[in-house]
Design a protein around this nucleic acid. Sequence first.
DNA 1: GTGATATTGGAATGAATATTCCAAATAAAA
DNA 2: TTTTATTTGGAATATTCATTCCAATATCAC
Lengths: 239, 239
Amino acid sequence: MERTFRNSNFEGAYFKCEVGSGKSEKVSDFRLPISDFRLPISDFQTMPRTKQFNEEEVLRKAMELFWKQGYHATSIQNLVDQLGINRASLYDTFGGKDALFEKAFEKYVRDYSAQVIAQLSRHESVRRALEAFFLSEARAAARDKDHKGCFVVNTTTEFVPNSEEWAQRITRQRKAMEHLFLQYLQRAVEQGEIPPGKDLPALAAYLFTFYNGLKVVSKANDSEEELCRVVQVALSVLD
Amino acid sequence: MERTFRNSNFEGAYFKCEVGSGKSEKVSDFRLPISDFRLPISDFQTMPRTKQFNEEEVLRKAMELFWKQGYHATSIQNLVDQLGINRASLYDTFGGKDALFEKAFEKYVRDYSAQVIAQLSRHESVRRALEAFFLSEARAAARDKDHKGCFVVNTTTEFVPNSEEWAQRITRQRKAMEHLFLQYLQRAVEQGEIPPGKDLPALAAYLFTFYNGLKVVSKANDSEEELCRVVQVALSVLD
DNA sequence: GTGATATTGGAATGAATATTCCAAATAAAA
DNA sequence: TTTTATTTGGAATATTCATTCCAATATCAC
């Protein structure tokens, strides 16, 4: 507790820009002090040793490991080995296994949401955008030699129904993604790509359901061709 | 090892008919000895104490627990508490955690396959049969207060890609279910329900993929109505 | 009832688990 | 260089894990 917060006075006091592999070797570390910053409590006069690793990069590694193995099958030792940082650093920086998993999950959602939106907004035609999105997901899944699937989907099956907290988190994710699909479908109707009068919320929920299925099945089927044909069938509901 | 097989000479020698809760209280136990049965090796003269629990019933409980919680989140202590049998009995009867999980998985596949086939063969019309099947799955999922989903789907996300052995098992399951769907689709073409010339294997793979998605999504969405509408959208590819 | 033997409950074991702790090393500023 | 606060490596801790063991119990054949 005590050690965890010993630095809390200085949160946000510096813009850090760190570069390096983070594998406990020296890294560059530029700090741009905010000139008019006043120390609120402490009376110290020197700055201590800085972190030897890039926090974002380490978090990315943790994300990949939890993504691939899930929460229960990933041990702290596992993380220490893979992340290349010390046990104590892990606890000091991220708080513990639960907190680290949450941060990894949030990073995935953050990164992945941006990617989905970017992918979908590449085409004017909604039909083409959805096709491009699902085909790219199918291809990426088939090519991922780790067969990680989707972090959110994996977490759904691992934590629901055994954690009410995670069930709510997952539900929020579902609604966000269904809402995103819905917006595109509404635009499709406006653009005359989809005949009006269709049950768009059900269609959006369907797209989300199919997405989940694709992410599960692609873990155990790496045939790019088969997955792409399935996508084409799935999207034929839009015709 | 030694204790595990001490009774192996008598496997199948009796038709057992046991009744009882199995919660370490006395149960009725009727044994109908097979009259012409000859002891192959042993020279014993008395029969030992019989099992105090119904093996099939205990296996069913183990299946439900693994189904709900997964492999890693279920401890032996957990099983001992839930199954109502002794630690030693568990190891003697089922071999260990891994072996018990496998047996539970196989029981699920056995029971569930029979149920799927029964469900599908209720209607002459393939379209109606598929609709009845998916709607019944949606309704059952929404009504399952444990939100267990599908044991096979859960196992897919938990063990793939971290176990090659399970990946193969899961792949076999996928192919079996796709094959089942394909047979029905072929019959649908013969019966004139589906226009000829469609890519039936892709359609079968699509149905399987959607099934997986439904089983994931229904864990965190218990709205029967929403799930059923999604099913209707999904099956519109057949029109 | 008696003898033989498997089951049973619970303790014992040893490995793995998450987390905490501390001395030594180190970076930044004076 | 000295001072200071932090990171770091690895040991220490306490819990939980899967599994084994054994004495006591209970059942079946006689």
